[in-house]
Design a protein around this nucleic acid. Structure first.
Lengths: 172, 172
DNA sequence: GACATTTGATATATTCGATAACAATTATCA
DNA sequence: TGATAATTGTTATCGAATATATCAAATGTC
């Protein structure tokens, strides 16, 4: 029992990321966040959810999640790599990467090719369609998603934010 | 079949948040991230995972997750509120908040009290122990977690980062 | 008083991240 | 060379987070 769809045929349509916090118009209005608003982790998570939400909206015509987009980007930039290498670079565990690839391959965005040198590994390649979709996705991301971020933050702040986040991801 | 622990007795010990990305020492070394490093969403998520990881380490003696800490903070700051109000403020759906509260209540950190006015709702209160744990947690967070963040980023950058994240969470 | 709404709760589905184990292949080295 | 170890992709499975539908009890509305 518990027959579940095989991952290979899941088109994997993105769904809502997380519920919005609600300002409850209770007795005397909004609740006090207190120290919560000063907690960097809390603000990071809230902001990340919003940004992913906007990413999904902007790339909705192509039906790509942030994770799928990052895979396509990486395949394009790093030809001739196998599943382990791509998954490791993105912090995805190999077992979980299998279903992700199944979904992308079923949409003819990428393909697994058996390596001649090492017949254990699959060399990952973007298909023609994969390259086309990636090109369109890049434009949507740049012109709609990132453009809006830069507009809200201001170009200088946007750059500073990126730099700080990179530092956190590295040195922390 | 599929007998699962009831949520009410789960002590809910935090576990590793996400796999680290790996610099694969492949043929010619590290893979190229390309446009990925300029994607704000990507950096946001990576940074958020690192920060949560550090939070868990710092508060490990008290066995509190970021979500649990935020609940305790909110209960302390907003006495006399019910489950719906607290859950809404944190962006948690009421059905999912039930198990969270069960876990906190089973550890005697908070309690549900039936309201006299409205016998449907549960007024949430911190217990004595809840207040003590929260006080200790606040100190750990300030002196270990946030202190390290400020040290890595610098105080001015830390403040600027908080401000930008708040803006993203609000205006985006 | 009939009907709708709210509250906490249960059951359940989906997605994501994690571990264990396996077959096929390749690497190591006694 | 041949036994043994390690790697690769894969499956099965688990746990946690997030989502929906639905329910009984209590309350609100008309």
């Amino acid at each position: 029992m518990t027959v579940s769809k095989t991952a290979s045929d899941a088109a994997r349509l993105p769904r809502p990321l997380r519920r919005e916090p609600v300002d409850p118009a209770g007795d005397d209005g909004m609740l006090q966040l207190g120290e919560l608003s000063g907690l960097l982790g809390y603000s990071l998570k809230r902001a990340q959810l919003k940004v992913f939400e906007d990413f999904l909206r902007c790339v909705a015509p192509l039906q790509l999640t942030p994770a799928q987009f990052s895979v396509l980007l990486l395949l394009d930039k790093n030809p001739g790599r196998n599943q382990t290498e791509i998954a490791n670079t993105l912090g995805i565990l190999r077992p979980n990467f299998v279903a992700m690839l199944d979904a992308l391959e079923s949409r003819d965005l990428c393909a697994r090719m058996r390596s001649a040198n090492d017949r254990r590994s699959h060399i990952l390649v973007l298909t023609e369609r994969g390259r086309a979709v990636l090109a369109r996705a890049k434009k949507l991301v740049a012109n709609k998603h990132e453009a809006r971020l830069i507009e809200v933050l201001g170009p200088a702040n946007h750059a500073a934010l990126l730099e700080m986040l990179a530092k956190l991801a590295q040195e922390f």
